[in-house]
Simulated assay, not measured.
Amino acid sequence: MSTNNTTTPKKQPLWHNFVAGGIAGVSEILVMYPLDVVKTRAQLHVGQGGSMFSALIHMIKHDGFKMYRGIVPPILVEAPKRAIKFASNQFYTEQILKYAGNAKPTQTQAIASGVLAGITEAFIVVPFELVKIRLQAKENAGKYKNTMDCVLKIAKQDGLNGFFKGLESTLWRHLFWNGAYFGLIHTIKAQMPTPKSQSQTTFNNFVAGALAGTLGTVLNTPADVVKSRIQNQAEGPRKYNWCLPSIYTVFKEEGFSALYKGFLPKVLRLGPGGGILLVVNDYVMKFLAKNNY
């Protein structure tokens, strides 16, 4: 049985999930990265900001190719990050099914394996996320020459522990998103017409991944907002430290809507992005199986 939420008809080795997830992740980040930059800048801005479209147009006009500042860390981490996402979800699903004794995961079991995969993924991604946030922030323009300069300055200022700033909020962000994503994919696909061609399979995967990714984004955006602010604090007294108290601080000072700053570019990235992930992951898994790798 395949437990990676694709239509692959038989169980495949765990390394297939690593390869497929890695290729899917890099594909998604290359297509959707500009929206991630707009999202981060909106989250770091205190007070009312402009629309997503005006911010995106302004960034394209004034930054040009520089809008891809900070893409090196996510590119470097995207392959192992998404690989771990899909492979760990398969691993945890197998362990849960073995313990429970049932053949297919229930809704609760699918959510549980997704949450555990999210927690595992968060430990890997947090240092790369921190570097990316520092490079994307407008107020840091000119502060770092490049990615390596940013890494060296963080290491000099905060030491090794500095790279794990925001770990707790990253854990919340990932467990919410992965729990919703993997918890709903098979349920959504079960409600759709049985595909009779590869194009219909691709369509079903994209719709299921996009809807599941959208719900995950709704659930995890407040944690993502405070994660960005926690990781962008470099020197002096730190206003934001832990996820839940920071969410309360943002809510108290800026209102509920501030917890969803950057939501539109984020959901436009991770909704379709979730579809891209599932489509590419499914395609690569089938390719590996067909060619007997």
Rank of each mutant, 00 (worst) to 15 (best):
247 I>G: 02
146 N>H: 14
172 W>F: 14
228 S>V: 03
148 M>Y: 15
137 A>H: 06
97 L>V: 04
293 Y>A: 14
54 S>Q: 09
136 Q>N: 07
39 K>N: 13
242 W>F: 14
262 G>F: 11
90 Q>K: 06
270 L>Y: 08
181 Y>R: 06
14 L>E: 09
1 M>P: 12
265 P>M: 06
176 F>G: 00
218 V>A: 01
112 A>F: 13
120 T>H: 10
236 G>L: 04
258 A>D: 01
112 A>H: 08
106 T>A: 02
226 V>K: 04
6 T>Q: 00
206 F>A: 08
139 E>R: 11
135 L>S: 11
197 S>L: 02
236 G>Y: 02
21 G>M: 00
264 L>R: 10
254 E>N: 00
67 M>R: 04
42 A>F: 06
27 S>D: 07
282 D>H: 06
239 K>A: 13
122 A>T: 08
121 E>K: 14
116 L>V: 12
210 A>H: 00
206 F>W: 07
17 N>R: 07
156 K>D: 12
67 M>P: 03
112 A>T: 14
23 I>T: 11
131 V>A: 06
46 V>N: 11
141 A>G: 05
230 I>W: 03
109 Q>L: 10
9 P>K: 04
86 F>Q: 01
99 Y>I: 11
251 F>M: 11
269 R>Y: 14
118 G>M: 11
238 R>I: 03
56 L>K: 03
266 K>E: 13
123 F>P: 01
212 A>V: 00
22 G>M: 03
51 S>I: 04
233 Q>L: 05
286 K>M: 14
244 L>A: 06
125 V>T: 15
282 D>F: 00
57 I>G: 06
165 K>I: 07
257 S>H: 13
173 R>D: 13
109 Q>C: 09
186 H>E: 10
274 G>L: 02
71 I>P: 00
127 P>C: 01
200 Q>S: 09
291 N>K: 10
194 T>L: 09
209 G>K: 09
227 K>Y: 10
204 N>P: 01
52 M>V: 07
36 D>R: 03
92 Y>G: 09
238 R>P: 05
274 G>F: 00
284 V>C: 12
180 A>K: 01
